[in-house]
């Protein structure tokens, strides 16, 4: 168990060190996410923004595109120079590799969200003070499910050598139930002033857990010996 945790820490630290060294992901993705929020905000206009409907949806659009770029870039470092083969040769459980990538992705997405969300809130005049905890929990749980799928499919797409579009094409439709549920809950909470019910939250958590467990199990097959 201790060895597994040590390996997990080593893998996550490596991903974060690479990101800190290259700043390839966060810098680029933050700019892109802010652009998405700004363009959509300008496109929707003040009336739509004032309705309280747009902000959660626009934020999710930004999170989705930012997430896909994150997933792709964190997996791409394994493809360069065949590093993945060395990783697979090491006595590390494939599940540990999956969770390490997932944690790295979540940390990077969280860093991006911390920058992008306040920008969107200011731009849309979205008052988070009514239920900040509900916002964080709803987005956080959904993000775990989204990152679980993203981590899986970035490895799958990575192993085929295809980049870019295909990852978004696969992840977006599969993430739809999570994103819709999360957006719906946030709109009801912030526009209608209804608290997030335990049932709604339980369904969201169940979705995220299903995505997490299935992705973890399938990841092992994707990274099975000979698949790289």
């Amino acid at each position: 168990m201790m060895r597994t945790l040590r390996q997990l820490r080593t893998l996550v630290a490596k991903d974060l060190r690479l990101e800190a060294r290259t700043r390839q992901t966060v810098g680029l993705v933050v700019v892109m996410a802010i652009l998405i929020v700004t363009v959509l905000g300008l496109g929707l206009g003040p009336q739509q923004l004032a309705s309280g409907f747009a902000a959660p949806a626009v934020l999710w659009v930004a999170y989705l595109f930012a997430g896909v770029l994150c997933f792709e870039k964190t997996m791409a470092c394994e493809r360069h120079d065949g590093a993945l083969a060395a990783l697979l040769l090491a006595p590390v459980d494939r599940g540990v590799i999956y969770f390490a990538k997932l944690i790295s992705n979540l940390i990077l997405i969280a860093a991006i969200a911390i920058v992008v969300t306040p920008v969107a809130l200011v731009l849309f005049g979205f008052d988070l003070s009514a239920a900040p905890g509900a916002f964080v929990v709803t987005v956080g749980v959904s993000m775990i499910g989204f990152a679980a799928i993203g981590t899986l499919f970035s490895a799958a797409v990575n192993s085929t050598g295809v980049r870019g579009g295909p990852l978004a094409m696969v992840i977006f439709p599969i993430s739809l139930p999570l994103v819709l549920a999360s957006t719906h809950m946030l709109i009801k909470c912030f526009r209608d002033g209804e608290p997030i019910t335990q049932t709604a939250l339980a369904i969201l958590i169940a979705f995220a857990l299903i995505y997490l467990v299935v992705s973890w199990l399938v990841f092992e097959m994707i990274l099975a010996p000979g698949s790289e």
Binding site: H80, D81, G82, A83, L89, A90, P91
Partner: peptide, 21 residues
Amino acid sequence: AAALRARIGMIGHQPMLYRDL
């Protein structure tokens, strides 16, 4: 085969290293 694999070293076509580290 993880335990057996741990007793093998491999040098590939590619360096199998992280270029930014």
